[in-house]
């Protein structure tokens, strides 16, 4: 059964002539327990799409359904990991996570909250940094805090907006594994938005490209039938991986190319030939 459904969703910004339609005719259905990735170039409306799903913004047309109910704003059932971590800089790691926990379980005592928070800090391996503030942490550690904050609220679905976009390749790889491992333990539904095709294929069951905007919409979906747990080094030589990767890259490249062609203009350039020292001498001789 579909846990999250988008039906003919359109969303644009601005008014009148200034209006740009960012997303158009988005149709998507995500099943319970599934890991779906959406890939797209930057600036195509990926963040708009995820904000529609988590309820921070509402569609202009169409509807967003969560478990058959129209989305009426953010909910504890849908955890969000933001692109830029969005940790509160005046709180420590523990306080940042506890803020969400207390909001979901207002009846819990302080010791229950503490125990719960500690468990999730442990899960993302941040116990030594539990009393540090975000500015004292590296990018990877901050993202771990954001992951722990979302998971500690025990959502039914996890929405991730380019969670690893700002990290270096090594940290990124590690965190991919960590997120997969945690997802495997909790088995919540997950939606990952990314601009990295390899990351999408490595992590997701299903990967869907987002076409370039304006009027971005979802392209054909690619199912990834690689056994879990997946191994990065082995995957590089897997035929299935290569096939999906090639198809997806071809699709994205073609789309990128068509976008460029549509935008390109023909310029008439003046006929110029460079003046070389030797030519100069010859010309001077001719003139003389």
């Amino acid at each position: 059964m579909a846990i999250l459904e988008l039906k003919n969703v359109c969303k644009g910004y601005g008014e009148g002539n200034e209006r740009t339609s960012v997303l158009k005719d988005i149709n998507l259905s995500i099943n319970e327990g599934e890991f779906v990735a959406i890939v797209g170039f930057s600036g195509t409306g990926k963040t708009t799409l995820i904000n529609l799903m988590n309820g921070l913004i509402y569609p202009d047309q169409g509807e967003v359904l969560f478990k058959g109910q129209q989305v009426q704003g953010p909910s504890h059932d849908r955890g969000v990991i933001f692109q830029n971590y969005s940790l509160l800089p005046w709180f420590t790691v523990t306080q940042n996570i506890a803020l969400g926990v207390k909001s979901v379980y207002p009846s819990w005592s302080q010791s229950e909250v503490d125990a719960h928070v500690s468990r999730f800090i442990e899960m993302v391996n941040l116990t030594p940094a539990r009393n540090k503030r975000p500015k004292e942490l590296s990018g990877g550690m901050r993202q771990r805090v954001a992951v722990a904050r979302s998971l500690s609220m025990q959502p039914e679905m996890l929405l991730m907006d380019e969670p690893l976009g700002a990290l270096d390749a090594l940290t990124r790889g590690n965190l991919q594994d960590e997120i997969l491992q945690i997802w495997n333990q909790n088995r919540c539904t997950a939606l990952l938005i990314t601009n990295d095709v390899d990351e999408g294929i490595y992590m997701a069951d299903r990967i869907i490209p987002l076409t370039t905007g304006p009027d971005a919409t979802l392209g054909p979906e690619f199912n990834i039938q690689i056994e879990r747990p997946r191994d990065k080094t082995e995957m590089n030589s897997s035929d299935e991986f290569k096939k999906v990767r090639n198809e997806l890259m071809t699709y994205l490249m073609d789309m990128g190319a068509s976008r460029k062609q549509a935008g390109a203009k023909e310029y008439s350039l003046p006929q110029l030939s460079p003046v070389m020292p030797r030519n100069m001498q010859r010309r001077n001789r001719k003139a003389g």
Partner: peptide
Amino acid sequence: NVARVLQLS
């Protein structure tokens, strides 16, 4: 947005 997603009072 964090405050909204965490549904703080």
